[in-house]
Design a protein around this nucleic acid. Structure first.
Lengths: 186, 186
DNA sequence: ACCTGAACACCGTTCAAGT
DNA sequence: ACCTGAACACCGTTCAAGT
């Protein structure tokens, strides 16, 4: 876990969240650190390795965050708002997207090793939402819970996608408010 | 409107829908047609010009489709199902995405000329959904209609994004069914 | 262990030149 | 009007070589 390696991961994550996996450039990452691109390849042999490491770290961070929320003892409403706050923060930070959302859009262009890590992120999020639903809406069947978690997750990702396209964070807020108003979310 | 120009647009559209604007390659387009990449530049001087033309045509086609639906005299439910069917068809066709969705994800990496055309597509879709809402849910205020249209549009785009990431079209169907079940859509 | 220099085949773009 | 050939600066990747 060298210092250089961490810098690569941090700069790489920002690049992907801003412009996508395709726009992730070894030469640009290297230039920002002040080394040569070949040195980046020493830490991450291929672009797929770097992309996979980025997605893996992202999924792992999401896991820790969700676990922390579930153990907080807060209401489902409060946990849900803290959860969506993370997606909102990405938009507030220079119109960035959740790393998952942008990589899902590029999915077919992703190396298999990156796809696996992207899939992990989805699982983490769905499990969190299912746990919330189980607490807040005990009247739902377990099949309905699975479907509803998917519907909520896709609604959040879509709100982020459209808000980014409009460069307007209030689009995100309004979409989520509407989803809540009809009873889709918490 | 030469034959070559049309071929470029068709191949280019498929490339963007599969792998994004960044993966759109003049050399690959040229190779598929059997000409040199410089010849593609004759029709579209820059990549931004080609991307803009693709997004423009996409928005225009959406406009025609939505206009046709609104004039069909069908119920809002039937029109909405025909509308979402287009997004579904993209997924069914080799896990492709709506051109808008993938370009919205890459938004910050897009040349200004492409962004303008991407924005047009959003407007077309929001106007269509607002027209549907006005008919089917006359109890909503005009402010609520705008918010609701945004919420529905983002929910559809998100369902497509997540379904693509999971390479599973039933995710799209289930998410839309859940959105309908809670009364978000029609 | 970590990095550089140089090479490879790719890319968008430009432009003179061909028909 | 439409296309080619050749060049430019970019890209990911490889590998021998340096420390």
């Amino acid at each position: 876990m060298s210092d250089t390696r961490d810098k690569i991961l941090e700069i790489g994550r920002r690049m992907v969240q801003s412009n996508g996996y395709n726009a992730l450039s070894f030469r640009e990452v290297a230039a920002e650190i002040g080394i040569k691109s070949a040195a980046v390849h020493y830490h991450f042999p291929t672009k797929g390795d770097l992309g996979g490491a980025l997605a893996n770290k992202y999924a792992q961070d999401a896991q820790s965050f969700c676990d922390g929320l579930l153990q907080s003892g807060d209401t489902a409403e409060k946990m849900f708002r803290a959860y969506t706050g993370v997606f909102r923060a990405a938009l507030a930070d220079n119109n960035r997207m959740c790393l998952y959302g942008i990589m899902a859009a590029e999915y077919d262009d992703l190396p298999p090793g990156v796809r696996v890590e992207v899939d992990k992120f989805t699982e983490v999020n769905l499990h969190f939402l299912e746990a919330l639903l189980k607490r807040a809406k005990p009247e739902l069947t377990s099949a309905d819970i699975g479907t509803r978690a998917l519907a909520i997750f896709s609604a959040i990702e879509g709100a982020q996608l459209v808000a980014r396209g409009r460069k307007d964070i209030t689009v995100f807020d309004n979409a989520l408010a509407a989803h809540q108003a009809v009873g889709l979310t918490f």
